[in-house]
Design a protein around this nucleic acid. Sequence first.
DNA 1: CGCGATAGAGAACATTCGTTCCACAAGCGT
DNA 2: ACGCTTGTGGAACGAATGTTCTCTATCGCG
Lengths: 202, 202
Amino acid sequence: MFSIAQIMGNPNRDQEYLGKLQDYYADYRSIPSYAVIGDMLGMASKSAVSALIKRLTLAGYVEMTPDKRLAPTKRFFERELADFPIPAGMPAAANDAMSESLTIDEYLIPKPSSTIMVRIKGDSMIDAGIHDGDIAIVEKRHAASVGDIVVAVVDNEYTLKELGRDKQGYMLLPHNVDYAPIRPQEGLEIFGIMVGLVRKYR
Amino acid sequence: MFSIAQIMGNPNRDQEYLGKLQDYYADYRSIPSYAVIGDMLGMASKSAVSALIKRLTLAGYVEMTPDKRLAPTKRFFERELADFPIPAGMPAAANDAMSESLTIDEYLIPKPSSTIMVRIKGDSMIDAGIHDGDIAIVEKRHAASVGDIVVAVVDNEYTLKELGRDKQGYMLLPHNVDYAPIRPQEGLEIFGIMVGLVRKYR
DNA sequence: CGCGATAGAGAACATTCGTTCCACAAGCGT
DNA sequence: ACGCTTGTGGAACGAATGTTCTCTATCGCG
């Protein structure tokens, strides 16, 4: 991977171009055609745009999708440090974790079609930091590992617990001393596993 | 605005198609050409794709950018929020009549410009369900109320605690029996208040 | 069983896309 | 001042795009 300064013909200029592309993308979630880019950046010809895109591609800001469409990369969304005016000493801005994604949605939901959000009821998992009213991000699938927090179907009811196992077989572990582990009588059906948690303070 | 069920020819089918488009977009941040969509969805002709896109446009999931490129709308990113326990039959493509739809970003970040994300370090707040490695959504402002979870500046260090108060004045309350409340010596500067929490299970 | 409505296949079409080539202008060092 | 490098303007080109049309298969309903 290269830095923009290493690749770019005129780094400052190109940085500014990149900024305008980022703004456009923020508005429309799509990268425009070369002609529109040209308009936007004040270039009269598409060859200039073509060259710019080549540079941006080399520098890793955009890439081609499998069907040769121009798409932004993770690096495209990186923010300048100046955007995060966090005074020195700030508990490391979550920049590191989030820098790879534009949004929290992307961060938590890599596979939208098989992901649902469920609002937690009750406090059987409170010792795992899962509170009543929290929203669980659940990825639907039938395979889970011991230690995963799963949504399982027990006696025709859905429940969120940690998947555990001992010599007697699988069980569902609440995280609350007031609740006892559940040993499903007849098999255990996994509905999905919990991949994320969202809580809102108001 | 319409619901997908009102517009769609075959709602379940279209919902599934929409899901695949969402997955593709999550991977590449771009909507593919009609030909690729056709491949992906098992349609051999572009006219079928064209019809689908018309329906999705009507339903408000995609739209045209100023230069006639296909782009997702906000609604494209919304996810259904189910209440727990999950109603039976849920696994099937959620038809409407379901509770709310929302994006996590909008849910947690009403004021983007004054909101930052901070990764939690340590477990001084673990009894409040705030774990090491979680991401706190922090709205920057200087006013806070007792009971808020705040990011405060104490002795030139940033710390996340509950804001408390007794007759001796304000203090910062950890939520962990191993930690003692902090009574700032010389004033207390509030950096922001915690409005949300995001956790990712791997 | 037959009818109509609907969706998809397939092909033709004009449009638009991005690439590529060449020529010219501006900036730089010698 | 000159020549070289670099970047841009412009035009031409083939490829790919999305629209539209007709025809056929399928489904639902009576």
